[in-house]
Amino acid sequence: MDYVTAQTKLFLDRLYALMKIGEDCRLPRGKSCVLVYSQGGGDNGKAVMDNLAGFFRFALNIDVIDIIGDNMLNELGAVKNRREILKMAFELGKEIVRG
């Protein structure tokens, strides 16, 4: 349906409790995250995640360090054959651990 899964939407809906109209987000500043996705068919996963990254940045003051994922990952274990994604995730993980 060109958006996130029902479970992800449920998570996002719960984040609205951190916001109050006319005030800053209740979440303390300085938080960061990495968005990770896998998409079966289609080719708009990155665009959807870019949209979510904007929400995280501007509504919740969360720094989105990076977005990792790709489409055509329906088959169980398909990401094992996508070396570029695995390498990107590994390098990003090293960067995060170094802080």
Rank of each mutant, 00 (worst) to 15 (best):
L76V: 14
G22K: 03
I62M: 14
L76R: 14
D43I: 01
M19A: 09
D24R: 13
E84T: 02
V97Q: 14
G93M: 02
V4P: 02
E84D: 13
E84K: 02
K80N: 15
A17M: 03
K80C: 11
K20Q: 12
Q7G: 01
Y3M: 10
M49D: 01
Y37V: 14
A6D: 15
N61S: 14
I65F: 12
R83L: 09
I85L: 15
V48K: 11
Y3S: 09
V97L: 15
G30I: 04
E95Y: 07
G40A: 10
R14P: 00
L60K: 01
G54V: 02
D66Y: 12
F58S: 05
G40I: 00
L92K: 13
L18H: 07
G30N: 01
R83Q: 09
S32I: 00
G30E: 04
V48E: 01
R83D: 12
D70M: 03
L73M: 13
Q7N: 08
L52Y: 02
T8Y: 14
L76Y: 11
A59S: 15
M88W: 04
V97I: 15
I65G: 02
P28I: 09
D13C: 05
L10K: 13
D70S: 15
A53Q: 00
E75T: 14
E23P: 03
V4Y: 08
G77L: 02
K46I: 06
D50M: 09
I65S: 10
D66A: 14
A53V: 03
R29V: 15
G69F: 03
G30L: 07
K94D: 13
R14I: 01
L12S: 10
T8L: 15
G93F: 06
A89R: 11
S38T: 15
G99E: 11
C33Y: 06
I21K: 12
A53E: 08
K46M: 14
R29F: 11
D50Q: 10
G77P: 10
D2C: 07
C33T: 12
R26P: 06
N51Q: 10
C33A: 11
N44I: 08
A6V: 12
G99V: 05
M1P: 06
T5Q: 06
N74R: 10
V64H: 05
L15W: 12
D24A: 09
E75W: 00
M1Q: 04
M72E: 04
A89K: 13
M19S: 07
L27M: 13
R26D: 02
D70L: 05
Q7H: 04
A53R: 04
L86G: 04
L12T: 04
M19W: 10
I21M: 07
K46A: 08
Y16P: 00
N74C: 03
T5H: 12
D70N: 11
L10F: 03
K20M: 08
K31V: 07
P28C: 09
